[in-house]
């Protein structure tokens, strides 16, 4: 019985992802582990090619919007708020990313008061790819005035429906159905912070996406990104384990070659005057349904970058990197405030 189930899921895995496996094996930027296999004597130079090819391929399309990816989320829009549904890890990720945004904005001085229940009072936030608003709602509850942006109609409907249940959110949270590129071209205000959590791995052109994010950002505003790295480990963790073996998220949620290598992303940010202040690895424990901060960024990671209008300024914050005792330890969000 169990054997049969395993067999089935194995064949599922192979047939469904034959193209993925194929693309993996024949991909121009062969993954790093491929090179260390005995039959293949790699050089350091070859591994480095990876990031370059990545940029080259992405340059061809200039839109961040991928219709197929957006439809994928629209189809599951009824499940955004099911606590045990396909988006369970996104719900529990709030324990890390809400403090990341909250304490990040407090540390850049974007906030007025940091005591009390609403430390983000008066801060404007754009949540790009907000989906059902899993992250938008808590940010609004912390006092921020949040605009949730998503290209999927159905997701925005689900988000609006859910936010109407909580009177505390009224007047603080609005949703817009639009893709980021179009939105950034018809901008009527810039934001103190732009958040794009778990979106980067679903867009076509990372550059166009980052550029649009930057356009929405006030000078010295903060950009918060969380996404998945492109490493062998992330293939095993985010696709093989999460989609096929443990079935935490639906099969086909992620495509490995859309994952975003952290070094390339940081370089890209830097070129556009976005200085990385903080980077953290994130690790998910499926059985406990808990996330924790880790130093290793090879699977999931989070970035906080600040828009420095004048790029010639040598930013002292440059040195700030992973700090284990950072104020955003999920265990003690209060301690950093009081």
């Amino acid at each position: 019985m169990i054997c049969k189930k395993i067999m089935n899921s194995c064949s599922d895995l192979i047939s469904l992802h034959r193209c993925c496996l194929k693309s993996l094996l024949c991909h121009q930027s062969t993954p790093a582990w491929w090179h260390v296999m005995p039959q293949n004597y790699c050089t350091v130079r070859e591994i480095n090619i990876k990031t370059e090819t990545y940029q080259n391929t992405r340059h061809k399309q200039q839109s961040s919007f991928n219709d197929e990816e957006v439809r994928k989320f629209g189809a599951l829009s009824d499940h955004w708020w099911a606590r045990d549904g396909p988006y369970k890890p996104l719900h529990s990720l709030n324990r890390l990313r809400v403090p990341l945004v909250r304490d990040g904005l407090i540390s850049t001085g974007a906030t007025v008061s940091k005591d009390g229940r609403q430390p983000l009072e008066g801060v404007t936030i754009l949540d790009v790819g907000c989906g059902g608003g899993i992250l938008s709602e808590p940010l609004a509850r912390l006092g921020a005035s949040v605009t949730g942006l998503d290209a999927s109609h159905k997701s925005i409907e689900a988000a609006q429906q859910h936010s109407s249940l909580d009177a505390d959110l009224q007047g603080r949270l609005q949703y817009k159905c639009c893709d980021l590129d179009t939105f950034s071209q018809r901008l009527d205000q810039q934001y103190d912070a732009v958040v794009a959590s778990e979106v980067l791995e679903h867009v076509d052109s990372i550059e166009a996406f980052i550029e649009s994010c930057n356009a929405c950002l006030k000078p010295s505003g903060s950009l918060f990104l969380t996404t998945i790295n492109r490493t062998p480990l992330s293939f095993l963790g985010a696709i093989v384990a999460a989609e096929y073996l443990l079935r935490i998220v639906p099969v086909g949620t992620h495509t490995w070659d859309k994952f975003v290598p952290i070094e390339a992303l940081k370089k890209l940010l830097e070129e556009r005057g976005l200085q990385t202040r903080l980077q953290h690895g994130m690790l998910y424990a499926p059985v406990l349904d808990r996330w924790c901060w880790v130093a290793d960024t090879s699977v999931n990671y989070a970035l906080h970058a600040v828009n420095i209008a004048d790029t010639s300024v040598n930013y002292a914050l440059h040195a700030v990197n992973y700090a284990p005792e950072s104020p955003m330890s999920p265990e003690s969000p209060t301690s950093s405030l009081s």
Binding site: R83, N94, V98, P138, D168, T334
Partner: peptide
């Protein structure tokens, strides 16, 4: 008290599960 404080500062609703 600590659990409620932590939870509200995570932007959760009061008395979240």
């Amino acid at each position: 008290t600590t659990a409620l404080e932590t939870s509200l500062l995570l932007g959760e609703t009061l008395g979240s599960a």
